[in-house]
Design a protein around this nucleic acid. Structure first.
Lengths: 180, 180
DNA sequence: GCTAGATAGTCTCACGTGCAACTATCTTGG
DNA sequence: CCAAGATAGTTGCACGTGAGACTATCTAGC
């Protein structure tokens, strides 16, 4: 039947059709891609308070810090770029800034002098240790509207979508790519 | 057992601590805000193919089109800005472009000459009618990894978070604000 | 062992977007 | 009915970021 319609002339038909099938209309508010965008933007800005205002970090810098802080060993900019899905030029700039602030340091890789191994300095680690609990707390606040079970559900659902989009990039896979 | 760990000096402590509490570490891959960001970006670029490459629309323009297409009556730029949560200057530029392309038209509002009522032209509506099924199909593809029930779950969970972030802006509320 | 192609990281350029100032218009209080 | 403040929409500016060129280095094949 008449599926997509900009009504006007179709009010009558709708009366009987409506009960049959929920005629597809594009309601932005129900459109998952739109909702994801909006939600991500909102959550980001809620978190930005922590690292941005309070510590002068922007999102890319925070991603570098978080990646290095999580894996205690040094890794390349390429690696960070891959596993955070952030453009390498963006990571490059963040690395430059963090080096300048003395939060990370880089050591030449004897085996391959094109790349540098990045790692947190003492100062960087201190910042990381201070920052991540705050961020976890924020995440917790944001998800406080969900029960424990619902959070698990959400995580699982996001995981499924990520996986189907081939977005998943476990630390292990990234390691594999990096070919230690 | 020991869940996420960047090991090194902590192997021993973890052994007994792990069973007690899942010591918080910040794994970006489990950090919901990060995941939302990444997912939203990926989904957006997947959808962009439809309206961008195929029809030369960018995201803001598409949002204007979608808002006007969904509600068949004319509405103001302000209204679109509010309900899509897009900055008014961004909407303004999108509107300019769409006017130029003859996809929308604007009529002066006699009651308040500061604002303009925007509506789709025939051409604009045709594009909308062509585009939104494609986008729904895309959304469907992206969510194809979820069962019908899981989709409902996802929608409900997103809804809860949106609500708790006061992100919800139903058409009705927006209407109210707009004060017809 | 040299050349061709891949890869790590940097840098320039163009562009989209948020902010804030600005104009025009409306509203409210004296 | 005028002045002060609010609101709709536009525009200039600054900034962050992705694309892609570029340099240096590594690797593979002849």
């Amino acid at each position: 039947m008449a599926r997509t319609l900009g009504d006007t002339a179709l009010k009558a038909k709708e009366a009987d059709a409506a009960s049959v099938r929920p005629k597809p209309r594009l309601d932005l508010f129900k459109f998952v891609p739109f909702r994801l965008n909006r939600l991500a933007a909102e959550v980001s800005s809620a978190l930005a308070v922590e690292y941005q205002e309070r510590h002068g970090l922007d999102i890319p810098a925070w991603r570098v810090l978080a990646t290095l802080g999580f894996r205690n060993d040094a890794c390349s900019a390429q690696f960070i770029s891959q596993c955070t899905r952030t453009h390498k030029s963006t990571i490059s700039r963040a690395v430059t800034a963090l080096l300048h602030d003395g939060l990370i340091e880089r050591v030449e890789n004897e085996a391959d002098r094109r790349e540098f191994r990045l790692q947190l300095t003492g100062k960087g680690r201190a910042l990381y240790e201070e920052l991540f609990p705050q961020l976890l707390r924020r995440e917790d606040e944001i998800l406080s509207c969900l029960s424990a079970q619902e959070r698990k559900q959400l995580s699982a659902l996001l995981g499924k979508i990520e996986q189907s989009l081939d977005l998943i990039q476990t630390s292990e896979e990234a390691d594999a790519k990096q070919a230690y």
